[in-house]
Design a protein around this nucleic acid. Sequence first.
DNA 1: TTATTAATTAATCAGATGTTTAATTCGCCT
DNA 2: AGGCGAATTAAACATCTGATTAATTAATAA
Lengths: 211, 211
Amino acid sequence: MKWKKTRPRGPGRRAASGEESRRRLIAAARAEFAQQGYRGTTIRTIAERADVTAAMVHYHFGSKHGLYLAVIRDTLEPVIATLQAGVQGEAQLADVIRSYMQLLQRTPELPLLIMRDVLADDGAMRESFIRDFAANAGRQIRALLEREAASGELREDIEPRFAAVSLLGMAVFPFLARPIAERVLNIDYDNDSLAALIDHTLRLFNEGARP
Amino acid sequence: MKWKKTRPRGPGRRAASGEESRRRLIAAARAEFAQQGYRGTTIRTIAERADVTAAMVHYHFGSKHGLYLAVIRDTLEPVIATLQAGVQGEAQLADVIRSYMQLLQRTPELPLLIMRDVLADDGAMRESFIRDFAANAGRQIRALLEREAASGELREDIEPRFAAVSLLGMAVFPFLARPIAERVLNIDYDNDSLAALIDHTLRLFNEGARP
DNA sequence: TTATTAATTAATCAGATGTTTAATTCGCCT
DNA sequence: AGGCGAATTAAACATCTGATTAATTAATAA
């Protein structure tokens, strides 16, 4: 005798199309990968969070690594779009930095995801990350700085490559080190505080800290 | 029949005192943890690198986590010493940043180790890290900045907390993002280039980038 | 309606991982 | 010399992990 009514949930296709499970898996994996790292995350944890079974990971993405790639692509899209829009639209450097930092605030797992990728010297993953994203973003930032330098808005004794890395550091580090910055340096991350931090960053870059 | 001569290596105490194995395990673990992360590193890998067996990890450190704690303490000691010497010796802010960045160059795995720790939200580990190190370092930096502010060497409209996080970002980020900075921004990390980067960082902080 | 295909679960597998235990060797103290 | 304790290894254990397979259900095409 079959208990169709009382069985909590068995195998078989669900009403919602498969695209729904796919999306939920990516969202769950993004959170877990950012918090626990790739190796620290099990597909069972991800599946439970997405309310499906572990086998769905392999059905939709082929492997844990395939899911990871999907997460990276999905998460990096808006960043690339932001930077490209900045350069192509001939925006000011200040505007690009501002929208970049705001994006980081809205996507707190982004720097964690990127950093775990950058730090690991596993190889394959990092190479593709640099090719598909970092090279692009780096070029955009350098292009912006060189444009400003060419129009005489930067000091001549400042090396644009160094300026780029310093600017990136000031923009990204507060989000990377957020748990420490919050508790040790008493930095807040609400909208108002973030606006103040952005203003501070741009002012410091432009005018320095000495009176 | 026992093959005392030909048996490659069996159990039993070795000539070198146990302190030697302990040191080698810490060194091996530091490299592996920095490269592969805590979860991505197996005690068998560490043991092989240190030329002992996995059981030695538990004999000397109780557990993998205990070894991790020992690595963190061992690696962080010189950083804390550097920062404390800076404050107690009433050094200039510039000197402290300079020696801090030089320390980061000499210990490339340090920022990876710290960041992996900061990023993970496992809990226990991060709390002790903040208590034992970050709180200390953060206070030192803030103390330095507030001393400079008090003696009128900082602009009054610059918030010392923000200045601290920006300065840390400029100092640490180049080492954190080193694989990307090298390949995407063409930054070098030899002694001369690093000296130039340090000068640039301090000049940018002091005087800004606008003409 | 019926056959086919897409989506899903439960069960299972082989390999890896942190840890424990028992046995073994060496240095040192009496 | 003898014995105790420190240091070390090999082997075994239980658990966890990514992946596979077979069965099952729902949507869809014929």
